[in-house]
Write a protein that binds this DNA or RNA. Structure first.
Length: 315
DNA sequence: AAGGTGGCCAACCGCCCTTAC
DNA sequence: TGTAAGGGCGGTTGGCCACCT
């Protein structure tokens, strides 16, 4: 309910009474009396035209302000308190897909939570956490600056037999140039997997009987993708079942490998990494066997949203 | 104990879209 | 068809609080 943050709203606007002159509208924090008026009116009359609500409820507020107060704070179905780990996970996942400009869509998947709440939560807690994660990564001379280079990647996979969205059984993120950095992920049970890559180069490996059908570069902190000549968007294609991996090389090519299709032994070319990031690729890159290069395609947002809609809601 | 600083979060701002006229 | 008003939404601001020095 009403918090202790009680600086009175614009004193000049108070005490206007109900004369016929155009009343100056109040701004700022809501008083308990205002809250009570709005709650009472909403519970009695239900939602309608917000300008009318503001007027009829006897509030010297604009309709917008009433709407915001009701939706973000007074609604009886709001869930207050800290986010659960499940909610956090879902927010991170959905944000990976939707980005910063879809708070309302993210909120729609979390009953009792508002877009504003999620936005605040993201901007304070999660962003900070990701930044800390970046700082814990073994740094190279050029990736330790404040730009925090990282990519967020979503990998969608299709079950090879059913062509329906299936779970990624096992995955691995590795940093090119640092064989000690391997971040294994277990995503069993989810229709898609999402990784934030705190490094300018990455390898996403998939093990399991699944085709990789689609991947997305969703975020580009520090202009990493730009340096690589990439844009946010899709990479992907279909592959035969087997052990797959996706890599982005230093030229910005998306390389897709399949252990079951080691038909050629072309070594991928390691070019420009030292120039760009200050470290070489010799540790890992030589192990990479070149497969087909995949091109960036159109970002199938609608298709993605179809997949998102299969996500479970947090109750 | 007092002042400084950063985090959290409620609320406002401004833009865009939709709808009514 | 054009215009104005209302509503929705993301970005941003600013006040309060807790913690640190």
């Amino acid at each position: 309910m009403y918090t202790a943050m009680t600086k009175p709203a614009d004193p000049a606007a108070i005490n206007n009474n109900n004369n016929n002159k155009k009343m100056k509208l109040r701004k700022g924090l809501w008083s308990p009396e205002e809250d009570e008026k709005l709650i009472k009116y909403m519970l009695t009359n239900g939602q309608g035209c917000w300008s009318d609500i503001a007027r009829n409820a006897g509030l010297q507020r604009c309709g917008k302000s009433c709407r915001l107060r009701w939706i973000n704070y007074l609604r009886p179905d709001l869930k207050r308190g800290a986010f659960s780990p499940q909610e956090e996970d879902l927010i991170v996942h959905l944000h990976s897909i939707l980005g910063n400009s879809r708070w309302s869509q993210i909120a729609a998947r979390l009953p009792g939570r508002t877009d504003n709440e999620i936005k605040n939560f993201w901007n304070s807690t999660i962003k900070k956490r990701l930044k800390m994660m970046n700082n814990n990564i073994p740094s190279s001379p050029n990736n330790s600056d404040s730009s925090d280079p990282c990519l967020t990647v979503a990998a969608m996979c299709l079950d090879s037999s059913s062509s329906s969205c299936a779970s990624l059984q096992e995955g691995m993120i590795s940093q090119f140039g640092d064989p000690n950095f391997h971040n294994s992920v277990d995503t069993t049970g989810g229709p898609a997997s999402f990784y934030t890559m705190p490094l300018p180069c990455f390898s996403l490996s998939q093990v399991g009987n699944h085709n990789i059908s689609q991947g997305l570069i969703l975020e580009d902190y520090g202009g990493v993708a730009g340096k690589l000549g990439l844009e946010q968007g899709e990479f992907g294609g279909t592959e035969a079942a087997g052990t797959n991996s996706i890599d982005i090389d230093m030229k910005g090519n998306i390389n897709h490998y399949n252990n079951g299709c080691f038909n050629n032994n072309n070594e991928a070319e390691a070019v420009g990494c030292e120039d760009m990031f200050g470290f070489g690729l010799e540790n890992n890159w030589n192990n990479i066997i070149g497969g087909e290069n995949l091109r960036m395609g159109e970002w199938d947002l609608e298709g993605l949203m179809d997949n998102v809609s299969s996500f479970p809601s947090v109750q």
